[in-house]
């Protein structure tokens, strides 16, 4: 249990660090959201689950927190992405396609 907990914590923090790196490297807000959301969601879930393995008395709260992060994180990043698009933040110059702009132009 303790070994598994340590492994989960390590993998989780590795993904958190990769998410931070993605935030720096990606060219526009939408790609940063992609890197930020995915990596931190799995990273945080893994760290929390690993911590619960080390201290089993907090398992119930840890499960609740994992469920909350899994539900809330995509919602908040979708909201940020939607607001950014409506707020006029352009896609990165290397983007290849934008169906949404086409849609609004024809309306």
């Amino acid at each position: 249990m303790v070994i598994l907990g340590n492994i989960l914590i390590f993998i989780g923090s590795l993904f958190l660090a990769l998410g931070g790196l993605g935030l720096i490297r990606m060219p526009d807000v939408y790609n940063r959201l992609q890197a930020g959301t995915k990596a931190t969601t799995l990273g945080a879930m893994s760290v929390i689950l690993g911590s619960a393995f080390l201290a089993p008395e907090m398992l119930t709260k840890a499960v609740l927190l994992i469920v909350f992060i899994a539900m809330a994180n995509p919602v908040s990043s979708s909201t940020i992405g939607r607001s950014a698009y409506k707020g006029g933040v352009p896609l990165a110059s290397r983007s290849v396609r934008d169906d949404w702009a086409k849609e609004e132009a024809t309306e």
């Binding site: 940063r32 930020g36 931190t40 760290v47 911590s51 201290a55 990043s77």
Partner: peptide
């Protein structure tokens, strides 16, 4: 929006850290 997204990410990182710190 970049700043907002960064602070959102920071919240999740802090949450994970708090749980680990609690252990």
């Amino acid at each position: 929006f970049d700043r907002l997204m960064a602070s959102d990410t920071l919240t999740v990182i802090a949450t994970a850290f708090l749980v680990l710190f609690s252990v």
